[in-house]
């Protein structure tokens, strides 16, 4: 017999896959390069949001550095490609590895602490990494960024590469969360001392979650670096992290479908509102505050409650 949690995960996976199938069908109707680009960036954010949700939503560790790890992954790849013209077969894993290892080291330092220390340290880490990369003109070309050769000029091919990454992430997270490890993570989120007292190695699993989340961010950053063929410190702006948090909260935190829904919804809205100019972030920030204050499981949770009501 499947538990309620497993049933819930399965229905969330199904919903997100339906959405992704729809996204896969979009190029049949839309061949406009601009809108394909917008959807590609949405999928970049879906990867970041999914990774952050694993850490914040399922493990309860609120890092404020998802965008920073994307930047680190992009620079890991970009520096190898720019200075030494290393083959993409090596630079792509190298970029992901950089994000992962830095994430692991940082987690090793901060995961022994509780409460707001993690948010504080990751926020400072994020800003300082951006300063260090932005100021090391000799090596990283500072704010100018690194231009690297792209791998494919076909936007449609990139579209499906990003889509495949998001789909793979959803299956991977599903498998992880329905396993024993998923229970460890959620136990840590719900009651850390309680979990430790039942023999869960909380520091180990928190570090593992942080590392995996950083690796997902790194993957997003690496793909984005080759897609846009430009690596710049702007990838790590705090604003980008703010967007990721908005996406996860608006879509619905601690659900498999929420972050993906949120990423498309927020980024597409933000592009459509671009003509109005500057109001989108005001709207999103207000929405996040309202959601956190009044219905904290976001749009996905709201939809689920409305759907489930008649059945009860």
């Amino acid at each position: 017999m499947r538990s309620a949690l497993q049933q819930r995960l399965r229905s969330e996976l199904r919903t997100s896959l339906v959405l992704l199938v729809l996204v896969a069908a979009v190029p049949i109707l839309v061949r406009n390069d601009y809108w394909l680009g917008v959807l590609i960036v949405s999928m970049y954010f879906a990867l970041l949001a999914g990774g952050w949700n694993l850490l914040a939503g399922y493990t309860g560790q609120f890092s404020l550095a998802p965008a920073t790890f994307a930047m680190l992954g992009a620079y890991g790849t970009g520096l190898l490609a720019y200075h030494w013209h290393v083959s993409p077969w090596l630079t792509i894993p190298a970029g992901i590895l950089v994000a992962m290892v830095v994430g692991m080291v940082l987690a090793g330092i901060v995961m022994r602490l509780r409460g707001p220390y993690l948010a504080l340290t990751t926020l400072s880490f994020a800003e300082i990494m951006r300063i260090v990369i932005g100021n090391s003109y000799g090596f990283t070309r500072g704010d100018l960024g690194l231009s690297i050769p792209t791998l494919m000029n076909d936007r449609l091919a990139w579209y499906y590469v990003f889509l495949a990454a998001v789909v793979a992430m959803q299956f991977g997270l599903y498998a992880l969360l329905r396993s024993r490890v998923g229970l460890y993570l959620m136990a840590i989120r719900d009651d850390e001392i309680g979990a430790a007292s039942r023999g869960v190695n909380t520091v180990f699993w928190k570090t593992a979650s942080f590392t995996l989340s950083s690796a997902l961010s790194g993957l997003a950053g690496v793909l984005y670096a080759y897609f846009s063929s430009l690596v710049s410190p702007e990838l790590g702006l705090l604003l980008q992290t703010g967007l990721v948090i908005c996406m996860v909260f608006i879509g619905g935190i601690a659900s498999l479908a929420g972050p993906v829904i949120g990423a498309f919804l927020v980024y597409l809205t933000s592009e459509s509102l671009r003509a109005v100019g500057g109001v989108q972030l005001i709207v999103f920030a207000l929405l996040v505050i309202l959601i956190a204050r009044f219905f904290r499981d976001g749009l996905w949770g709201l939809a689920r409650r409305i759907l489930e009501r008649p059945a009860r």
């Binding site: 908005c246 005001i282 207000l286 956190a292």
Partner: peptide, 10 residues
């Protein structure tokens, strides 16, 4: 964290 961070963005 989320509420104050969103307030800062706002």
């Amino acid at each position: 964290i989320v509420v104050t961070f969103a307030l800062s963005l706002l």
